[in-house]
């Protein structure tokens, strides 16, 4: 009822869909940086969508199984013997390796029975900054033994579904992606053309809190003194340096920098695939379209979920 982390790689953490209801106490949402990928992988192995899995960063990971399990993963173009978005069976003693991704930065691995760590503040996600939740509040290390829960169908793992998830859900990394944005509240104080007409480079100090970008400076047309207010994953802040930051799941709950724009929710999976050195562009869409795209994806997801459960029944 465990997996052995033979090689933990650069940054492997236990994550689920994140920690809601605690933002008012300064606790980050956290969770898988691509919650959609995590829940799709969970469904493919017969878990609840909110089960805890692993978030892997830039590969170099090897995991050994000690009993029979189904696995599925989604994310960047990683070198893995199992294709993304399909369930595969692992037996006791089997190992799976995640090599370096050709494109992208992260992937999410679901294991039938789920990662079994204590629920802290309503979630099993690792909060790296505040050092709680997940596996001892930290990233996994070589040699860790991580407990698993019982698979749904008793000891032997559930039957493998012949279904696979749509490619745009399971392979989210793109070369030089264009992320769609909606206007932020301080859009007007910048020359927004400076954001949408050029490309930006991802800098090495990017992390789970945010993707830091380097490009032509975004000068402010006027100086404003803002009081801090809520920010969210996807918010694009512009600090005094004029270099934008795209906030991700571990971002702080309130911030005082001007918000030029927000990456739309359905494009956050692609933002989570950006790694240092990558190029990214932005394109504006109307807010109503952003909401509509999200509603559509949620409908498609519900159909996928129902289809899978009917197939298993």
């Amino acid at each position: 009822m465990k997996i052995d982390i033979v090689r933990a790689g650069l940054l492997t953490t236990v994550q689920d869909l994140g920690r809601t209801r605690y933002r008012q106490f300064g606790v980050s949402l956290g969770g898988a940086l691509d919650v959609h990928a995590m829940r799709v992988a969970n469904l493919l192995v017969g878990n609840d969508e909110s089960a805890a899995g692993l978030e892997l960063t830039l590969g170099g990971v090897r995991i050994r199984f000690t009993d029979e399990r189904l696995i599925a993963w989604c994310g960047g173009e990683f070198d893995v013997p199992v294709p993304p978005g399909h369930a595969a069976r692992m037996h006791a003693g089997d190992e799976i390796s995640f090599g370096q991704p050709k494109i992208g930065c992260r992937s999410w691995l679901a294991i039938s029975g789920a990662i079994e760590v204590p629920i802290v503040l309503g979630s099993r996600s690792t909060d790296l900054r505040a050092q709680f939740g997940g596996f001892e509040g930290r990233a996994l290390r070589d040699g860790d033994a991580v407990s698993l829960g019982r698979s749904r169908n008793g000891g032997a793992a559930a039957a493998i579904s012949s279904w696979s998830a749509p490619r745009e859900w399971t392979q989210t990394a793109e070369d030089e992606p264009t992320l769609r944005i909606v206007r932020g509240n301080e859009w007007e104080i910048f020359d927004a053309f400076g954001l949408t007409s050029v490309h930006f480079d991802v800098t090495p100090d990017s992390n789970r809190m945010g993707v830091r970008l380097d490009g032509p400076e975004l000068p402010r047309k006027e100086d404003v003194d803002l009081t801090s207010e809520a920010v969210a994953p996807g918010t694009i802040q512009v600090p005094p340096s004029g270099q934008p930051i795209v906030l991700l799941g571990d971002c702080q709950t309130i911030g005082g920098y001007p918000k030029i724009a927000h990456v739309i929710t359905v494009d956050l999976p692609r933002a989570a695939q950006l790694r240092p050195g990558d190029r990214v562009r932005f394109r504006e869409v109307p807010l109503e379209q952003a909401r509509e795209l999200l509603r559509q994806r949620e409908n498609d997801y519900r159909c996928f979920k129902t289809g899978l459960s009917l197939q298993r029944a």
Binding site: T20, R21, Y22, R23, Q24, T227, S228, E229, A230, A232, T253, I254, T265, E288, R291, L294, R295, E298, N299
Partner: peptide, 23 residues
């Protein structure tokens, strides 16, 4: 509505777009 997060003179209100009829 999922959750609210107050700041000095504002309140962040997080919601699920799929769960609302019209904005």
């Amino acid at each position: 509505v999922i959750e609210c997060a107050p700041a000095y003179d504002s309140l962040g209100i997080f919601y699920e777009p799929g769960a609302i009829e019209s904005f």
